[in-house]
Design a protein around this nucleic acid. Structure first.
Lengths: 254, 254
DNA sequence: CGCTTCATTGATCAATCTCAACTCGCGTGG
DNA sequence: CCACGCGAGTTGAGATTGATCAATGAAGCG
């Protein structure tokens, strides 16, 4: 289904404005696309109405908390967010960074209680689907189910990767791998420019610390070392990888 | 469906002997039950044949490797196993321990390549389903889908828990939490006896080390300390928690 | 009986944390 | 306009946790 047609159908339907979606760098990746197509293109039967609502959260705002029950399933449209577990002593562990097109957690399709909190890092636009509706749609549309299972496998393998990193790798490796993984995910969304590669990089050092199980102080030292050895450059919320091969070596080796 | 009836139906069907299943401590928990019931009780239509085959692996044997493509989805019937990621330098990270009733990985339903290897810790009996068949069954039977989504949520939340443990907790906490989590899972399977609680505990210290991101040497020191302070007792592949409250305190606190 | 794996313990080392001081940029309110 | 406070980042010194190395003993097994 091409964008023109999609747009026409959308405007005619009960679905609120999705004009943004065509601009979404992750449109083909995300569940959104499949969900939208499913609502229009219900073969032979009348389209299921799927309500979705748009939201915007400023940087540092909590999008959802672990205690709350939600019947909404959020998907990130633009901006960066993080799933975070808070510990009783105030320290935090970031489970994953959420980029445009990411569903906050595939588990939310089956369970109303997120077991972590989601916080906006930049300003974030996101879209919530109603769980029950999205789930119905899922069973009616193999295409959507396909996308979901991809998202699910992806989510799990990133979690497993993080376990290995935290369990068995040094600070240098963890930080380098975090950055490389992020750049990789950004590339899939066409959010990487130029050569040497350069990306918008809104993370503060404390985000990196919370994701890698380190202290901000140590993160600062490691990044300085990376900079000093000409591997990367960070300035003005933007990051360039100057020596990709070298950086990869730092990330993988022992 | 009661066990008697189940047994009769089974013997009449093409499904190979499942006499063990009634004795399975995790029968109601697992996908097995739902899968079996689905094959018998296909409402209105002829039962889908679901081939499953039984296997036994001796302790320390690899059950499946990360490179292989499998169209089989294994579920543990008895014994303990572990999902393990191997690193190039020979160190290992255990992603999770598999107990009776556990599916090796829910992702295997959608993806033929496991991204980790599975190794038997004790002698393990397991049963493999064909992916395509099990998946078909899944869509035909909401009950089975329900079980799967539970398994998936469970798997993911244990992974997230492990991330937090590895990222933000001390060696003492990690080890205590690992043990408490295992005991908890064993209790759900009725595999805990007595008061103070006692369980069969086949893990070697190197398993604990690989699961907690520590060295076997350090694990030994921590366990000795736990023993010395009267929290637990370990002997003869059996573990007792002597001071549950105290042990919980060690596990949670900061 | 002789291996191999597993566990224990002590000594020393290294990675990372903690604490503290300082800088910089930014927004706010006087 | 300036003073101020605040959050972010940098840097150094010293403390701590857990790793590494090494020696020894005990247990399981062909």
């Amino acid at each position: 289904m091409n964008a023109q047609l999609a747009l026409k159908k959308m405007q005619a339907s009960t679905v609120p404005a999705q004009l943004y979606c065509e601009a979404c760098p992750a449109y083909e990746l995300s569940l959104c696309q499949a969900a939208c197509e499913a609502t229009w293109a219900c073969p032979g039967s009348k389209p299921l109405p799927v309500n979705q609502t748009e939201h915007t959260a400023p940087a540092r705002r909590t999008i959802c908390r672990e205690q709350d029950l939600h019947d909404a399933v959020p998907i990130i449209c633009s901006g960066w967010a993080a799933s975070i577990v808070m510990l009783s002593d105030g320290s935090r562990q970031i489970l994953s960074f959420l980029l445009p097109g990411d569903i906050v957690s595939t588990a939310l399709l089956f369970e109303p209680r997120p077991h972590c909190l989601v916080e906006a890092i930049t300003e974030v636009r996101y879209r919530t689907f109603k769980r029950t509706e999205l789930r119905q749609l899922l069973f009616a549309h193999p295409n959507l189910m396909e996308k979901l299972s991809k998202a699910w496998i992806d989510e799990k393998s990133r979690a497993d990767q993080l376990i290995v990193d935290l369990g068995r790798r040094t600070a240098d490796e963890r930080i380098a791998r975090l950055i490389l993984n992020l750049v990789d995910r950004l590339r899939k969304r066409d959010m990487v420019r130029g050569n040497p590669m350069e990306v918008e990089f809104p993370l503060r050092q404390h985000h990196i610390a919370d994701a890698t199980g380190l202290t901000p102080v140590h993160v600062s030292k490691v990044l300085s070392e990376f900079r000093r050895s000409g591997l990367i450059k960070i300035s003005e919320r933007s990051l360039s990888i100057l020596d990709l091969a070298g950086f990869r070596r730092v990330a993988n080796m022992r």
